[in-house]
Design a protein around this nucleic acid. Sequence first.
DNA 1: CGGGGATCGTGATAAGTTCTAACTAACTCA
DNA 2: TGAGTTAGTTAGAACTTATCACGATCCCCG
Lengths: 216, 216
Amino acid sequence: MTKDATTPRERYRSQVRAEIVEQAWKQVATAGASALSLNAIAKQMGMSGPALYRYFASRDDLITELVREAYRSLADTLRAAAAAGADLAGLAHALRDWALADPQRYFLVYGTPVPNYHAPEDTTAVSAEIMTILVDACAALAPAGPPTPFDAHLADHRDWAGDHPAPPAALRRFLAFWTRLHGVLSLELAGHFTGMGFDPALLFAAELDDLLALPR
Amino acid sequence: MTKDATTPRERYRSQVRAEIVEQAWKQVATAGASALSLNAIAKQMGMSGPALYRYFASRDDLITELVREAYRSLADTLRAAAAAGADLAGLAHALRDWALADPQRYFLVYGTPVPNYHAPEDTTAVSAEIMTILVDACAALAPAGPPTPFDAHLADHRDWAGDHPAPPAALRRFLAFWTRLHGVLSLELAGHFTGMGFDPALLFAAELDDLLALPR
DNA sequence: CGGGGATCGTGATAAGTTCTAACTAACTCA
DNA sequence: TGAGTTAGTTAGAACTTATCACGATCCCCG
C-alpha cells in the first residue's frame, strides 16, 4: 500500500499491521480511544501481548496511526464530495454523515485531546487540506456584506490559509461553518441532546441554513 | 457541608472526602479526567491505596463527584452573573471565563464522554438550571423575525424546556447560543486553533455579536 | 469512666494494563 | 546449506483498580 512490498516478508508485515489497526478501530468504536488495550487486540488476534510491539512501538504510536487514518478518511470524504460538485451544504452533510458513521472517530480528531498524547506532525498537512476544501467552498459563495471588525483581524492573521486567494470574509465564513457545525455535532454525539426531544438533524439543518444565508 | 456533621466522625469524614476531591481536581487539571489515579491521590495524601475506598466506592464514583461539582460550579457562576444583571453577552463571557479558568473541567462536562462512565441522575437537574438561566436571557431579548421551520419543530418538542414560558424563537436562540459558543470554546480549548494565528477571543466575540443580532 | 462496636487504615492479593528483556523458532537470502 | 534477520513466545517489572482480612483507633452509650 504505502510501498509496494515485493518481498513476502514486508507483505506479511503490512498485512498484520493492517489487521491490528482494524481490530483497534473495532475497540475504539465501542469503548473510545482511551479504552484501547494492546493486550486485548493481541488476544483477539490469537497472538500474545508483546508481539504487537514488533509492529507499533507503543500504544501512542497505534493511536497516532488511528488519528492519521481518521484525518485521511475525512479529507478523502470531503474531497470526493467536492469533486462530485457538492457545494457548502453538500460538504456539511458529508461531514455530518462521516461523523455519525463513527462518533468515536470524530472524537479522535475533533474531541477532547487524548491524555498523554499529542498529535503527530504530519496530520497538520491533512488538516490543512480539509480546511482548503472548505475554504474553497466558502469562497465560491456570494461575498458577504460589509466587512466586520473580525474580518480586519483575519486579514492580518491569515497565515493559516497559506496563499489561498480567499478574501477575509470567506475565511470568516469558514470559521463560522467549522465551529457552528462542530458545536452541534459534538454535543449531539456526546449525547447532550438525548432526552431533550427535538431532532438534532433539524438543528444541524437550521444552523446550516443560517450559515448559507449569512450575508445579512 | 451537605449535612451539618455534629459528630466529629462525620466531620472528619467529610473533610477527608473534600481533600480527596481537591487532589483529584489538581490531577484532572494537569492530565485530564482519564488520567486520574486513585493511587497517586492516596500517595500524595500520605495514605495508602485502598484507604480511599472508604470514601469513594470506585474511581467512577470520584469522577461522578467531580462532574457534579463542575455542573454546580457552572450553574453558580451563571446564576451569579444573571443575578448581577448580566444579559446574554455577559453570560457568554462568564461561560468563557469559566471554561478558560479550567479547561479540563469544561471537558468534564461538555467534552468527549469519559469511557466506561455515564453521568449520574441528579446532574440533569443542575443542567436544567443552567439551561433555564440561559433561556431566560434569550427570552429577554427582542423577539426574532418570522418563525422558521425549526421553530415549528421546537414548538412541538419543548418538553426539555419544562413549563418555561419562552416562545420557540427563544428556545431556538438558546440552542444556537449553546452550540455556537461551545463550538468555538471546545475547539479552542482542544488546541485546534493553535498555530492558526488569529485570536480565538475575537472569533468568540464575533460569533456572540452575530447571535445578539440574530433577528435578521 | 470504662467496655463495646463502628470505623479507619494497613498489607496482601487478584486481575488488569503497558512495556522490556531474553530466548526460540522460523523464514530469507546469498 | 549456512548465516542473519525477524517474528513470537514466556518471564518479569512497574503500574493501575478493586477486594478482603486484620489490627488499631476512636466514639458513643450505658
